[in-house]
């Protein structure tokens, strides 16, 4: 199969990679670009572990074909922090013990960023529904929700 040449801006850098047309953006990011912070929990759009921002919109990378990302801006968990300065969400997840095993964490961070970008002061219910596409089996969500609330408050102050 002939490979397709894709150029995207990934985490602020222009990145080129080759992909077959039927490969998911998730597999391309992990296997071709080397961004293994993007996780696969299901491959069918049901768990949110592969959450990325595609042109500022939250997407399950497992449901996007890699060639669709040509010309797009992509943000993954690897692009959240600013150099060695953590994003408030990352800091609040750490301080609030909002991860146990941590496999869901990259997806939650990206999904929570997508929420706060649009709604900087969400209610608990809004957070719960905004993150309902992200599965966590370890935490019971309590500390994740609180970490997002804390990050929102901090970002409001800043």
């Amino acid at each position: 199969m002939t490979k397709i040449h894709v150029t995207s801006e990934i985490n602020g850098d222009e990145v080129e990679f080759l992909t077959e047309p039927n490969v998911s953006l998730l597999n391309a990011l992990r296997d071709e670009v080397g961004l293994t912070g993007v996780k696969e929990g299901c491959g069918t759009g049901d768990c949110g572990a592969c959450s990325v921002l595609l042109n500022d919109e939250l997407n399950a990378a497992c449901l996007v074909f890699a060639p669709e990302a040509d010309g797009a801006e992509i943000l993954t968990v690897e692009g959240l922090s600013d150099g060695d300065h953590l994003h408030p969400l990352q800091q609040c997840f750490l301080e609030g013990a909002a991860l146990q095993c941590g496999i869901c964490t990259p997806g939650f961070l990206v999904a929570a960023k997508a929420l706060l970008d649009k709604n900087p002061d969400p209610t608990e219910t809004e957070i719960r529904y905004a993150l309902a596409g992200n599965l966590c089996r370890c935490t019971g969500y309590d500390k994740i929700i609180r970490a997002v609330q804390d990050a929102a408050a901090q970002m409001q102050e800043a």
Binding site: R30, D31, G34, L35, T36, G37, V38, K39, E40, T76, V77, E78, L80, S81, L86, Q90, F93, L94, E95, A97, L99, G102, I103, T105, P106, L109
Partner: peptide
């Protein structure tokens, strides 16, 4: 006490290597 866990930084930045991440 409740310090930040030592492996936490790797886990919030996508660095931590899980089973499927090794190449």
């Amino acid at each position: 006490s409740r310090p930040i866990r030592p492996d936490g930084f790797d886990k919030v930045t996508g660095r931590a290597k899980f089973g499927a991440d090794l190449v």
